[in-house]
């Protein structure tokens, strides 16, 4: 089932048009990876999906509903979650409080979700009373993903989740992404570490100048000579 259908997105910041014609589809329980050179508009696509930039064209359909004109708040309520690349945790709050903030809108008992996040990232349970600003880069990423999971999303968007972490932690994070996928959540990832990311992707998109260049299964993209030469080095 298609969870997200972003069609022919056109837009950018003020006068700068970044997306010229970009379409992304994500299904439930699927990992979709976006790769592309710097400035291709990968992060902008995510912001557009969440409604953080103004679109001049195109539409965003989420769970069968047109959300193109809704503010980010309403999209979060409907089940979108995003982990920004930077400043993705509340540094002055404890780890537990960070996760609680993820559940801010929830009226139900969220202790089950909390247990789930702690199950996925055991290190967070150990340090639950510690201030988030004291965490290492990898732990911080885990907390950021944990906070997003606390909103009980159907679509989880990760903006470069492995930027600045060691290769070991990177593998760990990709591993956890697969475990999150297995819970039936659709995942959209923007990645610099294209090779590793595409190897876990169900679908991969290559974005150039705000347009789709290639769309295929992750493994196919990895073997595509054009993609290999231009983006995988």
């Amino acid at each position: 089932m298609t969870l997200l259908n972003a069609r022919k997105l056109v837009g950018g910041y003020n006068s700068m048009m970044i997306l010229s014609d970009c379409s992304i589809e994500v299904a439930a329980g699927e990992v979709v990876v976006m790769v592309g050179p710097n400035g291709a508009g990968k992060t902008t696509v995510m912001k557009a999906i969440l409604g953080m930039i103004n679109l001049t064209g195109g539409s965003v359909i989420f769970k069968g509903e047109d959300v193109t004109s809704l503010p980010p708040q309403s999209r979060v309520v409907r089940g979108m979650a995003m982990v920004p690349q930077n400043h993705n945790v509340f540094t002055g709050l404890s780890i537990e409080e960070n996760l609680e903030m993820g559940a801010y809108l929830r009226k139900d008992d969220y202790s089950a979700s909390l247990e789930q996040v702690f199950g996925l990232f055991p290190v967070l349970r150990e340090k639950r009373t510690q201030v988030a600003g004291e965490l290492s880069g990898g732990q911080r990423q885990q907390l950021a993903v944990g906070r997003a999971l606390m909103t009980q999303p159907d679509l989880l968007m990760l903006d470069e989740p492995t930027a600045g972490v060691s290769p070991i932690v990177m593998n760990e994070i990709f591993d956890q992404v697969l475990r999150i996928r297995d819970q039936g959540i659709g995942i959209l990832i923007v990645e610099q570490n294209a090779r590793q990311a595409l190897s876990i992707a169900d679908v991969g998109y290559v974005l150039v100048n705000g347009k789709n260049r290639h769309t295929a299964k992750g493994s196919e993209l990895l073997n595509n000579p054009d993609v290999r030469q231009s983006f995988l080095g």
């Binding site: 980010p72 979060v76 509340f90 002055g92 409080e97 801010y104 906070r147 909103t151």
Partner: peptide
Amino acid sequence: TRLGKGMRAFSDNEDLALLSGID
């Protein structure tokens, strides 16, 4: 309190507070 923690979160990181649905 939930509201107080929300205020601290908002003060700490406004964008992330918005992403968490804090009004």
